[in-house]
Nucleic acid binder design. Structure first.
Lengths: 119, 119
DNA sequence: TTTTATACCTAACTTTCTTATGTAAAAATT
DNA sequence: AATTTTTACATAAGAAAGTTAGGTATAAAA
C-alpha cells in the first residue's frame, strides 16, 4: 500500500500566509475549511494545512487589515468568508514575488541550474 | 541608498540542513565559517546563514551521523572541517529531491505554471 | 595600536508550526 | 433511528528551528 509522501513540515513554515493570500487573490472569497480542502486537492495531499495553523493565521491577517470577513449562515451554522482588502491584494503580490525569488535563489544555490559557460 | 532585500527569514526555515548537506556534497569539505560566506557570496547576500543557526545545525548533523569532522590547526587556531558520511550523502540527495519537489508543488499551487489545456 | 575579519561556541527568546482538544450542525451510513 | 463521518469553527500546550545577543580568541589590516 502506498503512503502519500507529505513534505517534512518544516518546509511549509513561512509559506502559509503566502498560500492563503494567493488563493484568495485567485478565488475572490473563501472560507477556512475550504482553503484547507483546496490546498489538499490541488497538491494531491502533499501539502495539508492544519486547522490549528490556518485559523490563527486568518485571524492575524484580518487584524493586520489584509483580510475582511463576512459571516454567512448555512442552516444554523456560521461560515466565515474571507476576502482580500486592498492592502491584502498588494501584500499578496509582494509575498508571492518574494517566495518565487527565494525559490529561484534556492535552485541556483542547489546548483540545479548550472551555468553552461556561456554566461 | 539601496538596501539589499533579504528574504523574510521564515522562508529559510527548514532549508538550512539541505543547503549545508548539498554544499558539502559539491565541495567535498568545508568549515562552518566558510559555509556562511559561500552562501552569502553565491546568493548576493540575499541568504545569510547566521552562526547561531549554523553551528547547532552542524553539531546536530554530526551527532546524527550525517557529517564527520576533522580538526585542522591554522597557526594557533582550530578550524573544523566537515565532510559527508555515506549516510550524509544519501540524505543530501533525499533532502534536495524533497526540496525541489516541494518548490515545484508550491509553484503549481501559486498558479505560476498554469495548465495550457493540452495536459 | 586599534579595528576588522576570521573562527569557534552557547543561551535566551521569538515565531510558526503540530498535536490535542473542544463545540456543534449536517450528511452519510448502518 | 442511531451512529459515524464530514463540515466548520475555535483555542492552547508544546516542539522545532530559527534570530539576537553575547562570549572567546587569533590573524590581518588600517
Amino acid at each position: 500500500m502506498y503512503i502519500c509522501p507529505m513534505y517534512s513540515s518544516e518546509l511549509l513554515k513561512g509559506t502559509l500566509k503566502t498560500i492563503v493570500l494567493n488563493l484568495l487573490k485567485d478565488n475572490g472569497r473563501m472560507y477556512g475549511y475550504e482553503i484547507t480542502q483546496r490546498v489538499k486537492d490541488l497538491t494531491g495531499e502533499k501539502i495539508q494545512i492544519t486547522e490549528g495553523a490556518l485559523y490563527p493565521t486568518l485571524h492575524a491577517l484580518e487584524s493586520q487589515g489584509e483580510l475582511q470577513t463576512e459571516a454567512v449562515f448555512i442552516g444554523k451554522r456560521v461560515r466565515k468568508y474571507y476576502t482580500l482588502t486592498e492592502k491584502g491584494q498588494s501584500t499578496a503580490k509582494e509575498k508571492v514575488n518574494e517566495l518565487v525569488d527565494f525559490m529561484n535563489t534556492m535552485k541556483f544555490l542547489l546548483d540545479l541550474e548550472p551555468r553552461t559557460g556561456n554566461g
